[in-house]
Amino acid sequence: MQMAWKEVKKSKMKFLILGSIIFLVSFLTFIISGLANGLSEDNAALIKNVPNGQFYLNEDAKQTYNLSKIDIDQQDKLLADYKGATAMSIQMGFVNDTDDKQHSVAFVTSTDSELFPNVKDNEVVLDASLKDDGIKVGDILTNNQFSGEFKVVGFAEKQTYSHAPVAFISMKNYQEIYRVMEMQTVFIPGSDSPDSIKGLESFNNKEFLNTIPSYGAEQMSLNMIIWFLVVISGMLFAIFFYMMNVQKIGLYGILKAIGVKTISLFSMMWYQMLLITAVSLVLSVGLSQVFSMVAPAGMPFSLPIETSLLLSGVFLVIGFIGATISGFQIKKVEPLQAIQQGEM
């Protein structure tokens, strides 16, 4: 270990360059991960906030909740048979404020449930982000497909859907706006192994998220970037240590000749890799957390420390694998070959 540290001390610039690259790559990964998380929250906080359970859609809906309609008799039976079950619908729409300014919202309605705010007819509970648009409790909102008016009775924190703030309204008002009597889905909380219900298809929370248009595609592309960056960092380690090992073949040979164990040479490389990665990650985790605090309010950014730690762990594992693969040269080095190479 001492030898590894002494090399880092003596060759500061070399290790500083690798450390900077790892810092930049990991920082970029954390930022993109924060954006992916933020967009995911923005797209589906409404669903993410409900406890684990099963969403049932009509089989004929082809796994698209927009097309699903649950028969009213079947809905009543399910609500009676399953404790905590809720029938609900979500549709995108608009509300107009007192200044006639239009706001895009996701109208959500449900049967009586602890999961969503219970609102009376002609009342609305909005996502708190609409406060920034100047809407306050007591304001009157309208909708061109609704004969009455909505009175804002409260705000709910982090209730967004398909990148729009949620507007919780009563079932009667919802039925009037969308000219439909049936609900789209029935949610049954807590059932890990879904009961098979005739004519309905079940989805757990994660599967249901993928029925949201654009959710899967958005998350997949962001996650692909994240894992691509993680793999790049692993390759960077492999390439950097490969180059360094090529330069040090002679040294390794001499050290082997005087009796240094091969595992000690590997340990030296692992120690250096661990040191560089740990320092780079501490800096990038710290900076990304600071960014998380100062990010503009409109930017969908969410980076829980757990996610940063998980990604840091992945970086360490990838770095270890990259360095170890490049270290196979060390195993192959023959002392004699090094001696014949001359001065290092």
């Binding site: 090399e7 003596k10 060759s11 002679g250 040294l251 000749a257 090094a338 001696i339 001065e343 290092m344």
Partner: peptide
């Protein structure tokens, strides 16, 4: 061991 080159560890 003593070789033609000193082969000292540079760091």
């Amino acid at each position: 061991f003593v070789f033609q080159s000193s082969h000292l560890v540079p760091f």
